[in-house]
Design a protein around this nucleic acid. Structure first.
Lengths: 379, 379
DNA sequence: CTGAAAGCGCTTACAG
DNA sequence: CTGAAAGCGCTTACAG
């Protein structure tokens, strides 16, 4: 008997509401072979097939061989959905990125973390589900309607109160959480904080520039509140506080795009004059500022020193090469996955907080020159 | 009665093989409330709850209100796994990227497509599963063991025979396929090809440079065979064939990294002398070549003209701005999702092949200068 | 307008 | 060493 729900209605509409639509065909359902088909063909019971496939129980070697042969011949693939229901485990992790920009994957810091996550998870037969949600649409998001993962890796933007709200909301999903780049929200049960040492990176950048004799510093920051960015700012602030007479000004660069950063830098240059050094909150901001300075006839590093943050391949594409802070965003993603799978395996996280180190990478954009650059400087 | 499989063994080990590990705890399982809990609390049957939640059948408004109240109060969330099993539909699409580089998401062309996909799918309550697989590990990949999607969007690299093999393999999964950037593999049932018009882009680039009087052209290509890259090459080749006396040389740039591109360009410059123009297979290749030329004292565009391909934000970060081919990789991703959901809804794809247009974006890197650049050229 | 029953494809404890 | 039975949490056709 062919059950009639082979032709059924699916949740499927443009506004995300249920809609009544009839499926005309489902090739998979027609041909799907089950564990019972294999069992019948091999002349055993379904449970023996299950045991062989999962390496459990004692099964006679000859029986096992027969079963494996039949599995191969029939092209049997166990139903993931059935296994998930039966075991109430999903073998899936959700990466949740709460950010206004729908094009969030264009940030290399984000993509490197995502790549680290997928690589680690796939190695362990877990899959990654990526969800980008705008802060303004967080509550009416269908994240909560169709949630299907064993854990969450979350990156929040926004101020403390907003982030607190996001965290409280996803805690209702009752799965373990790895919170990225968070250092202000207080610890919670079944939730750890994982980040790179942005404060230290900022501190190193600041001390490096101050050690070069720079005193009037700017730091370029995006509109969006990112905890990681706040940490860098705090680090630079600390360094500046150590040197009497040094000061630091924050320049808002809107959405971090090239154009908005260029415009913000241009206005600041006209309003405040040229600073000794410009600290980019990340590499993109730094490079956009560098281009702006160069186009205005300023020489880097002679007239103004410039630094970035994160050390993506990107920094090499610029001239002079950028002084930046190297961190491994890829490693950060891998580590998030590792901690989550550890938690799933052992029932508890191995620690409350993890901070990965960063290192200052000195390029020519903060070089103390005693002679003009020559082509030899670039090799 | 608490079933004992709450403490069960999970597939979980570093090499991807099943391993015997006991879960010490599962917070979700302890507290999960089901449709029956809601039904009992509301004094109705499970099916009435189901009807209300899915907007089917006739239910008395007062009954429906009560049920919705209980759902909210208990925080009931339907089990996705159960729904999937019952309906044998997953509400999930897999994006499969077959490429050697495990850091595949660092390519902006890939990430833009992934972003377009997620955005479209999430709007329609589908989720995206990303799988990167190395060509060499394709067959022993566990893609086939844990497959769980209603459709596939695939990006292959490699030569024709390899890509043919990949396609044949994923066809065994019996779900509809959208093949990206493919134009040589013959059409198959339940599989469409979606790409941007790389040939036209290459043709336009070639004609533009030849129109500028350039005759000795190079094209920078990566080691990896990408069909999209081959299409661009074919386009440039066509343009060159139109002009007697013009010639085109292919320069292999290894893995496309800055360093390997720089080295390949340097060696080529020493071996063959400076060409009239360098066509980058993509923006990154073009910018790396531009940096190399500038560092060797060549002036762009006076001594050598340079072009890119894809027009990412990236191109603006370079000086002079890059002539490139604009396409919308984001749109390509959206379109792939759209076609797949159409297929799932209607039982058949709406067409066999889709080609999205591209446009030439002329920057200063191919400007025909009659005077030296001034800062005014940059605004 | 509402409910009892069946079944999606697995895995487990238990009995043979 | 192997199997019959139960049940994970839903949805559907059908009967009332």
């Amino acid at each position: 008997m062919l059950p009639c729900y082979r032709w059924r209605r699916f949740l499927f509409s443009s506004d995300g509401r249920p809609a009544d639509i009839t499926m005309s065909d489902d090739t998979r359902a027609d041909k799907a072979i089950t564990i019972h088909d294999v069992a019948r063909e091999a002349g055993v019971s379904a449970m023996t097939v299950s045991n062989v496939l999962n390496g459990r129980g004692r099964v006679a070697p000859t029986t096992a061989d027969t079963i494996r042969e039949v599995v191969g011949r029939l092209g049997y693939r166990p139903s993931v959905a059935a296994r998930r229901l039966r075991l109430s485990h999903q073998w899936a992790i959700t990466m949740l990125i709460v950010v206004e920009d729908p094009d969030f994957l264009s940030d290399p810091f984000i993509t490197a973390q995502v790549t680290g996550l997928t690589n680690y998870l796939n190695r362990h037969s877990y899959s990654l589900i990526i969800r980008g949600i705008r802060p303004s649409e967080f509550s009416k998001s269908d994240l909560f309607r169709g949630f299907e993962a064993d854990g969450i890796v979350a990156i929040f933007s926004g101020d403390l109160a907003e982030r607190e709200r996001f965290l409280t909301a996803i805690e209702a999903l009752r799965v373990p959480i790895v919170l990225m780049h968070e250092y202000t929200l207080p610890p919670r049960p079944d939730c750890i904080r994982l980040r790179q040492d942005d404060f230290s990176g900022g501190l190193q950048i600041g001390r490096h520039l101050l050690g070069n004799g720079m005193r009037r510093l700017w730091m370029l920051m995006p509109d969006a509140h990112w905890p990681a960015m706040d940490g860098r700012w705090a680090g630079v602030t600390s360094a500046v506080a150590e040197v009497p007479g040094a000061d630091l000004r924050q320049i808002n660069c809107g959405n971090e795009s090239f154009l908005q950063t260029r415009d913000a830098t241009t206005i600041a240059l006209e309003q405040y004059g040229t600073p000794d050094a410009i600290v980019g909150g990340n590499d993109q901001l730094a490079v956009a500022a560098m281009m702006t300075c160069v186009r205005r006839g300023l020489v880097v590093p002679d007239d103004v020193q410039i630094t970035g943050f994160n050390g993506f391949d990107f920094w090499q594409y610029v001239q002079p090469t950028l002084t930046t802070v190297k961190s491994s965003a890829h490693l950060l993603g891998e580590r998030a996955a590792q901690e989550l799978l550890y938690r799933l395996q052992h029932g508890a996280f191995s620690s409350q907080e993890l901070v990965l180190p960063v290192t200052l990478e000195v390029g020519r954009s903060t070089a103390q020159l005693t002679r003009p650059l020559s082509s030899a400087d670039f090799d």
